[in-house]
Design a binder for these strands. Structure first.
Lengths: 337, 337
DNA sequence: ATGAAAGCGCTAACAG
DNA sequence: CTGTTAGCGCTTTCAT
């Protein structure tokens, strides 16, 4: 491995001077010296060891991100946004996954901090309150992404979930639906889930409709439960005329459940889903969804984090709220009499 | 920040001793000292600075991965495999994206190397031959993923593309199809694309069928070109009775193109796609595809890289070839007379 | 304008 | 069994 000393020797100068050109401190440097050093670097094909630089400078130019599930296309898209923004600003990115497990989230957070990342973005499981508080205390920069944390006043990027759901439900109500089912994953401390349920309730209430608990299905994350929940909804005495699916996985499971019951969307039942993807228009039928600006979420989160890292004086936490958008396709129609 | 010196002071010992417990060199250490140090660590809530450790040990316990496109669900799944394997082995992961651009790939490779990652996994653009050769020369560990590189004899994880396509095409031929279109993205140096076209040709040849160049559509990567290619295929004098789409994006575009022409799958035309996802069964119609073991690819690549990093003596490059699987759904049927 | 020297936080001989 | 010492590769005062 070629080091700064090799370059210094080759150019016949001190390593301080080499360091100066590495850091582009050309102010008090003769053109000649600059040339000599640049040449030596070139000839030796030298690249500085970031580890040593970071150790000295006390910053790594690397940020970390902890995602609940990378294989979810939604998060993949968010990740791309983060990636692009990091690239633009010369930051490296360490990616890790909590798999929705608080312990793993904690381990990852600690791991990233011990690796001295300059900050982290986290799509939190909603636990580890103490850890986040202590991070806040030691002024370790982080931004909460998609899921906010009660009691933690930190930089946050979220989407307006209440509003997204209200629009979707209102659309169904306007179409004449009176019995609307909703399928969610176990709320836990996940703010989006809580807010989506809240949006559902608000929409009904503001239309003077009663909330029928039997139409609210909360199932746990493991694959297949959304199908079961849908079947239960469909075998109700007074079956709903529309179902609202609250995330990518549930979109698919609700559709599957309906298919299994031998019903057709939208003739027999209307459906609206959450999150939009290139294949959604090609589903049978093309599904209406509440689209979230995934890529932009990533960009915004990374930009917020980086600006915070660069800022010397602390400013008070910022909350960025993005707006979702209801995309109507052919999966809803007025209920049959 | 609390350092090893703080711990040493607190415990009233030398920092070498602290270092020993950090590295679990308990062999010649009194229980008492061990206790003292462990306590001090606990009380100070100390975590070692990985940067300093890495600088000294000359290894970071971090690997890098360069993907052509993270937002592609296929790669997201691969990434999950890599992630899990890294986690299992205590490695951190730096993720970057080349966006199919050789220059970006090169920059990322250099960036990762300067950050002293212990190795990298790369889904290469197919260029940068010289760089890879020089990496080989300096014994920098890397594994090529999904796409191999002619002239570079390195660790590689690939899927048997020729075989995957042959099975799909043979299935169509067995159903009675004689005019089978294929849509690919610009071959470039991407081995999978080259091999998939090769598989197509081999399948036809081994069935004594002529290769009709007008049935082979090669379009460039930007969104929408697959739709156009499909429309062209369908407006041919002697239109194909089946179309084979060779990747995730083309699956969607071929289906879209067919829809735009007002044709129905599989009644008017049969389709087989590439790569399998949870939503594929819910498409209209449920698409038959050649499924690749994405997650396993990631696991295998990471495992291969890590084993190589740990090995002191060099061994000759390994090539791991995984097998794809043809999944038949309702998108194919014998052509109408 | 340039170089010498100290030190970032840690590990690993080597000594004792 | 434990401590002293010399760096890892780089940046940054502080002299000159």
């Amino acid at each position: 491995m070629v080091t700064i000393d090799d370059v210094a020797k080759k150019a016949g100068v001190s390593k301080s001077s080499v360091s100066r050109v590495l850091n582009e401190n050309f102010e008090y440097m003769s053109e000649e010296m600059k040339e000599k050093i640049l040449n030596a670097i070139e000839e030796l094909n030298y690249t500085p060891n970031s580890l040593a630089q970071s150790l000295k400078k006390k910053k790594t130019q690397v940020i970390g991100i902890i995602l609940s599930d990378i294989s979810n296309p939604f998060w993949a898209e968010v990740l791309k946004g983060v990636q692009d923004e990091c690239n633009k600003n010369g930051y490296g990115l360490m990616v890790s996954s909590s798999n929705e497990d608080p312990e793993t989230e904690k381990d990852n957070l600690l791991m990233l901090r011990s690796r001295q990342v300059d900050g982290v973005i986290v799509n939190t499981t909603g636990s580890n309150l103490d850890l986040f508080k202590s991070l806040l205390g030691e002024r370790f920069p982080f931004v909460l992404l998609d899921r906010s944390l009660g009691g933690i006043n930190a930089d946050t990027v979220v989407v307006n979930n209440v509003e997204g759901v209200k629009q979707a439900i209102q659309f169904l109500i306007d179409q004449g639906h009176r019995r609307i089912g909703i399928v969610l994953h176990t709320l836990g401390n996940r703010s989006p889930r809580i807010e989506r349920l809240e949006g559902y309730k608000q929409a009904l209430i503001s239309n003077n409709m009663a909330i029928d608990e039997s139409l609210i299905k909360i199932c746990n994350l493991s694959r297949g439960n959304g199908i079961k929940a849908t079947e239960e909804l469909l075998s109700l005495q007074k079956r709903p005329t529309a179902i609202f699916a609250t995330n990518e996985m549930l979109n698919l499971e609700v559709l599957t459940g309906i298919k299994k019951c031998g019903l057709k969307v939208p003739d027999d039942i209307s459906v609206i889903g959450y999150d939009d993807f290139p294949w959604i228009p090609l589903l049978d039928p093309p599904l209406s969804t509440v689209a979230q600006p995934a890529y932009e979420m990533g960009v915004k989160a990374a930009a917020l984090l980086i600006s915070n890292i660069k800022r010397k004086r602390k400013r008070r936490p910022q909350i960025i709220q993005l707006e979702p958008q209801l995309v109507i396709r052919n999966s809803c129609q007025p209920p049959k009499r």
